[in-house]
Amino acid sequence: MRKAILFPLLVLLAVVLGRTPAQPAAAPVKPVLITAVTSWFKDYPSNDAVWELQRQLERKSGGSLKIDWKGGPEIVSPFEAVDALSRGVFHMLNTSGAYYTQLVPEVVFLDYFDGPIKALRAAGVIDFFDKINQEKAGVKLLGVVRGASGYALYTRKPVTKLEDFKGLKIRATPTYVPLIKALGASPVTMRPGDIYTAMERGVVDGFAFPEVGTMDLKLHEVYCCMIRPPFWTGRTVLLMNLQAFQKLSPEHQKLLTDTMRNIDEQWVEPHFKKLLEIELRELVTKHGRK
């Protein structure tokens, strides 16, 4: 009887002593956050590709790499944003080359290259501008996040002949100031977010702006006429602090650059072509703009 009781106890003791102690649950991996700023308010079309990149990165990385948007021009002036980026105030910036010609004058020439981004990259154009940005501003050119959007002129009153431009004050960026002067008008530099109030108060009589986006800023409320065809095309670029990029793991670097490449080569142009068609139609049919 004693043997019958003792044997099961010995078996139980052996099981208990031989059991591997329970391991504590592994702590969840903390995601790598890329802090980002945009030169336009959140819902402006020039930022659309940034949000697409944000969605794709989080999905493809399983949440290990995320873009943490901190704000738009209320965070830092577009004309000072690249300087702040190069100093590491934040990691990523969506902006226009026209906003940082004081640091990298050559960057505006990216807008003068015609053709799709895929062709420009194959020809070495994107790598060339990436190298210049790294050398002069300490930032990496990740990609082009807005297609070659045409720029038009918008005025408070009809302009039907060249002489009508004389004496007008036109909002402009440094890139096309010579054109505004050649028309006989006076260029005025200001942030996109200040255009509405400036037009409303008569500080400026018109402005140059991409064909896509005036409705998002409600600028159609303060101009009567749109002067086309476009006089210039402009692209927006996504930049990253070079040191911040280099600190990413090789896997995250590849994921970021490959995803951005897919977006600017496959997604950007069709997206903005569709937006332009919608905006031009609504400006005429819904708002009676000419």
Rank of each mutant, 00 (worst) to 15 (best):
213 G>D: 01
19 R>L: 05
67 I>R: 09
53 L>S: 03
88 G>M: 07
236 T>W: 04
85 L>Q: 12
248 L>E: 09
108 V>H: 02
278 I>C: 01
211 E>C: 05
252 H>G: 11
136 K>H: 10
287 H>F: 15
205 D>M: 02
130 D>Q: 08
158 P>T: 00
111 D>C: 13
71 G>D: 11
228 R>Q: 06
74 E>M: 06
64 S>R: 10
114 D>V: 08
144 V>W: 04
212 V>E: 02
196 Y>Q: 04
235 R>M: 04
262 N>V: 02
269 E>T: 08
171 R>P: 01
99 Y>M: 04
225 C>E: 02
156 R>L: 05
125 V>T: 09
6 L>Y: 08
61 S>K: 08
272 F>D: 12
158 P>V: 00
179 L>W: 11
185 A>I: 09
197 T>D: 13
76 V>D: 05
194 D>N: 09
128 F>Y: 10
185 A>T: 10
84 A>F: 07
120 L>S: 12
104 V>R: 02
227 I>Q: 13
245 F>K: 04
90 F>S: 04
38 T>E: 15
240 M>R: 10
33 L>Q: 12
137 A>T: 12
1 M>Y: 00
41 F>R: 03
17 L>D: 03
166 K>R: 14
45 P>G: 07
17 L>Y: 15
129 F>I: 06
284 V>K: 15
35 T>S: 05
88 G>F: 01
283 L>E: 04
250 P>W: 00
12 L>I: 13
43 D>L: 05
249 S>N: 02
129 F>C: 03
123 A>G: 05
119 A>S: 01
164 D>S: 08
198 A>N: 06
33 L>H: 11
22 A>H: 11
26 A>I: 14
191 R>L: 14
85 L>E: 06
260 M>C: 04
110 L>T: 07
45 P>M: 04
252 H>K: 12
11 V>M: 14
8 P>Q: 15
58 E>V: 05
30 K>Y: 07
238 L>G: 14
83 D>Q: 11
